[in-house]
Nucleic acid binder design. Structure first.
Length: 510
RNA sequence: GGCCCCAUCGUCUAGUGGCCUAGGACGCUGCCCUCUCAAGGCAGAGAUCACGGGUUCGAAUCCCGUUGGGGCCA
């Protein structure tokens, strides 16, 4: 039975790199009917915050990455045994899932390792270590720990203790041989033990270091596969050494490549959105983000790029993950988002666009779903909704005169303000008297007008489009006119007709 | 600086010794459709497979080196 985990530090929002790691873990768990575990690595007390924990929950929930074990989403404020304050309730039998609540467990195993002789006490002070590092650097040697305290006598230790020095616990790394592991993505990776320094396992404060807590948790939570970012590759041999020292089997590792920004440097805020919640706020659909993220570093044999949810789960394979780093391409995400938006039903679309619309006049509420659907094929993100639809909700929008002037400059019949007024007057007259104000009815009427004038269709349609929206590009004209109705249409035609002398560049004949 | 990882169109990638005069997708350009913009359809430009050596009848694919990028430790 596969058990995988996602183990973020709650020191900020969940960024796309982390989300992609979570997704790959989740995908595999779902595909192989395994268990997806969420563990919060909050041992960095200074930088960890409950707010970050909530953000991680929100992000995972938005992406649809539900966890089978871990803190209970919404279980905030639960109280622990013995009256001590516990911030979150949890689900699963391997908890607690917050590392800060597992301190005694780490202590137990570090004591065991110390007794076994796998660990030793190091009394070096920060200053001494720093001085040593500087010296090594000066001599152009690798600044590794000197193993000074590795063979201290009991007497020497006693004297350090008498000085009040609190020791760190270091791992006694074998001085020969190699530590090797088979990575699911990169095949065999090996490190010479000589290159690994005697790393710290327990800090002088008594708290575990990342590598130690991680090993203890991964074992106790019965993690079978550790799928994480490439930035952890050099932690892996240390963790394996700890596993071996305690006598536990190490899990299978898979290291995902790192994500880069569009310019090839490490993805950061200056490239655009990096936090998952930001994508939500910018009008992306979680399905699109999931689909896109899945493709950043993974591909099927036929380079398929659109996946139904279940299909993604069925087809995902760790072994087909890319070894080289992937650059985040916002343009492709936007394209993909557009694809997913076009698949929505009208009511889904409205629900998704709604938060981006701003104030909507009450009288338009009943047809809002239809209005929003008019531009369904155009949104790349919902944030564009305001630009696309704003004129529907605001009777006093500004006209973009340069648009119609540009058209008139190229037009055969619509050349002057007088021409514009003439066609607007005729438009008002015919639409005002039109019995059938349906899409088809409007279309027939408008085409007839153009024919009667001897004008090109565009020369009639565009003035109307301009009157009604202030722009020359927008939704299908007949559909929007029919939908919004006669009064709305005539009111806007009248408004434009009333704006005298507003045509700056084009020749005006009074 | 040390160790580790990586290297195919601008980007994501397919490719695991002959099917590759390197395929798909985004983006870009043009055409068609058309009331505009999109969407859609079609076409096109775009990669001496980082470079140099090998191995082999034959290499993007295997080996070695170089260069470049990245990660971790400082």
């Amino acid at each position: 039975m596969m058990r995988v985990r996602f183990a973020p530090s709650p020191t900020g929002y969940l960024h796309v790199g982390g989300a992609r790691t979570a997704l790959y873990n989740w995908l595999l768990a779902r595909k192989l009917k395994g268990t997806f575990i969420l563990r919060i690595e909050d041992t960095d007390e200074l930088r960890s915050s409950d707010d970050s924990v909530r953000q991680i929950f929100d992000s995972l929930r938005w992406l649809g990455l539900d966890w089978d074990e871990g803190p209970l989403d919404g279980g905030e404020g639960a109280s622990g045994r013995g009256g001590e304050k516990k911030r979150w309730a949890s689900k699963g039998n391997f908890g607690p899932y917050f590392q800060m609540e597992r301190q005694e467990i780490y202590r137990k195993y570090s004591q065991e390792l110390l007794t076994k002789g796998a660990l030793y006490e190091c009394f070096c002070t920060e200053e001494e270590l720093q001085a040593h590092r500087d010296q090594a650097l000066l001599a152009k040697r690798a600044p590794r720990y000197s193993k000074l305290c590795r063979r201290l006598s009991e007497k020497e230790k006693e004297s350090f203790r008498a000085q009040g020095r609190a020791p760190t616990l270091r791992f006694a790394v074998p001085e020969e041989g190699q530590t090797v592991f088979d990575d699911s993505i990169r095949d065999r990776v090996s490190f010479s033990n000589l290159e690994l320094e005697d790393f710290i396992v327990v800090k002088s404060s008594g708290g575990p270091t990342y590598n130690f807590a991680c090993v203890v948790d991964d074992h106790l939570m019965e993690i079978t596969h550790v799928i994480r970012g490439e930035d952890h590759i050099s932690n892996t041999p240390k963790q394996i050494l700890i596993f071996q020292a305690i006598g536990w089997p190490a899990p299978q590792y898979a290291h995902l490549s790192i994500l880069l920004g569009p310019d090839g440097s490490r993805l950061s805020k200056r490239h655009g959105a990096t936090s998952i919640l930001e994508f939500k706020d910018q009008g992306y659909l979680s399905q699109a983000v999931v689909n896109y993220l899945a493709l950043l570093g993974w591909a099927t044999q036929d380079s398929q790029d659109l996946f139904a949810h279940e299909e993604l789960i069925a087809k995902f394979e760790l072994e087909r993950c890319q070894k080289n780093p992937a650059a985040f391409d916002y343009a492709k995400l936007q394209w993909m988002n557009g694809i997913y938006i076009r698949k929505l039903t009208k009511s889904q679309l409205l629900a998704a666009v709604r938060p981006f619309l701003g104030p909507v006049p009450a009288n338009l509420e009943p047809i809002l779903e239809e209005i929003v659907a008019l531009e369904q094929e155009k949104y790349r993100t919902f944030a564009e909704a305001r630009d696309l639809l704003g004129f529907f909700f605001n009777d006093n929008f500004d006209y973009r005169w340069e648009d119609i002037e540009g058209l008139m400059a190229k037009s055969l019949n619509l050349k002057t303000r007088a021409d514009l007024d003439r066609v607007l007057a005729e438009l008002a007259k015919r639409l005002g008297g039109l019995a059938d104000f349906s899409v088809a009815g409007v279309e027939v009427s408008l085409r007839a007008l153009a024919k009667d004038f001897g004008w090109k269709n565009t020369e009639v349609f565009h003035p109307l489009r301009f009157a009604v929206s202030g722009k020359l590009q927008g939704p299908s004209l007949f559909h929007m006119i029919a939908l919004l109705g006669r009064d709305w249409t005539l009111g806007r035609v009248a408004r434009l007709a009333g704006l005298k002398n507003s045509l700056a560049g084009a020749p005006i004949q009074e």
